[in-house]
């Protein structure tokens, strides 16, 4: 009686699942769909480790019911790599040592992606502002900011400025 049927497009693929309304989107992704790249780091919508894109906008997936994603498009960290090619955001994090333990990284990258899709040429200040819903305990953020700027430079069309 408690279960319902929903269909969510996850990383471009329609996934039909049956679940209780109380199941959080983060739990559906991790447990139901096996997409464990989305992490859970707190109970209070504070840390942003679970950040995914819902219809292109960054959302803390621990603060959205999975049923609410019915009929919507969800992108997770697993969807960043296309045809085994890394997304520039991923490359940037590796190149600039933007991660240490890696736990906040997926959420951080999804926030970065949402920023760059809205603002392809952010300043350092805009990057810091856009990432301020994601907590990192390892890096001190300095290299994360560099990583996002690296990705922005790479994503810019050729001729408008290369990588740094």
């Amino acid at each position: 009686m408690f279960k319902r049927q929903v269909t969510i497009t996850v990383n471009g693929e329609a996934r039909a699942v049956e679940l209780e309304p109380r199941v959080l989107l983060a739990h559906l992704l991790r447990e139901g769909l096996g997409l464990t790249g989305t992490h859970i780091g707190c109970d209070t919508t504070s840390c942003g480790a679970c950040t995914v894109l819902v219809d292109g906008s960054a959302v803390k997936s621990c603060t959205m019911l999975a049923v609410q994603a019915d009929g919507h498009e969800v992108r997770t960290v697993e969807g960043l790599t296309r045809a085994s090619e890394l997304h520039p955001v991923q490359e940037g994090f590796q190149e600039e040592h933007g991660l240490q333990c890696g736990f906040c990284t997926p959420g951080m990258m999804m926030s970065a992606l949402a920023l760059l899709e809205r603002n392809p040429e952010p300043t350092e200040e805009e990057v810091r502002w856009a990432l301020s819903g994601n907590l990192c305990r390892c890096t001190g953020y300095q290299n994360i900011v560099k990583a996002v700027l690296w990705a922005a430079a790479k994503l810019r069309p050729a001729g408008t400025g290369g990588v740094r």
Partner: peptide, 11 residues
């Protein structure tokens, strides 16, 4: 811009 954080502001 001072409400919660940028991700929370999206919803």
């Amino acid at each position: 811009p001072l409400i919660a954080d940028p991700i929370v502001r999206n919803r």
